Amino acid sequence: MDVVVSAAGDTPFKPVAEIAPEDYEAAFRGKVLSQIELVRQGVGHVAARGSFTLISGVLADEPIPTGSAASMANGAIEAFVRAAAIEIAPQRVNAVSPTVFTESLDDYGSFFPGMPSVDLARVTEAYVRSVEGAQTGQVYAVR
């Protein structure tokens, strides 16, 4: 196998005063640990110069109300990518960090007031850059 790509992860959106420790744990399991496991287990199955591309998101850099669990998870993914890149070389690992998808504005647009959306086609281009490029330890922001 040459490439492993992840575009999945789930986090709850609740105000800090209402979010429970279990919600943060769920965000960590659903978005962070699941992707870390792809890399951890994949290292032995991906070609020596193969790559992993994970997903984080805009909330690592631009938090929103009710988004603390997502911000935590996205930041953790980005830190993991930078750290894992130096350990798994010559295999590569990067992350794509999009803002809200234009195609999902009806469902999620109200969570991201004032933030521009991005078409899935642009996000796909960032994945292609990660997979086909030579960089490692990068977070490709798609804004």
Rank of each mutant, 00 (worst) to 15 (best):
V128F: 14
V43Y: 01
D107N: 14
N74T: 04
S68A: 15
S104E: 10
I64T: 05
L33E: 05
G50M: 06
T53D: 10
F112W: 11
P65S: 06
A69G: 03
Q91K: 15
A76M: 02
R40S: 04
A84S: 12
L33F: 11
A79D: 01
F101H: 10
P63R: 10
T136C: 10
V100D: 05
I36R: 03
V96Q: 07
E125S: 03
T102I: 00
F111G: 08
Q35S: 01
G137F: 02
Q91D: 07
L33N: 01
S71W: 01
V123C: 13
S110C: 00
E103S: 10
V32N: 02
V43R: 13
A69R: 05
I77K: 13
I64K: 08
A121N: 09
V43F: 05
G114P: 10
A89L: 01
S51I: 01
A126N: 11
P113I: 07
Q35E: 10
E125A: 00
G67T: 06
E87W: 00
Q138V: 03
F112S: 08
A47Q: 08
A69Q: 08
R49T: 14
G75A: 15
V39M: 08
F52G: 09
D107Y: 13
S71P: 07
Q135F: 01
A27E: 04
A48I: 02
V43I: 15
A79I: 02
G133W: 11
E125T: 06
V128K: 09
G109S: 07
E62Q: 13
S97N: 13
S110F: 12
S104D: 13
E78Q: 15
S97M: 04
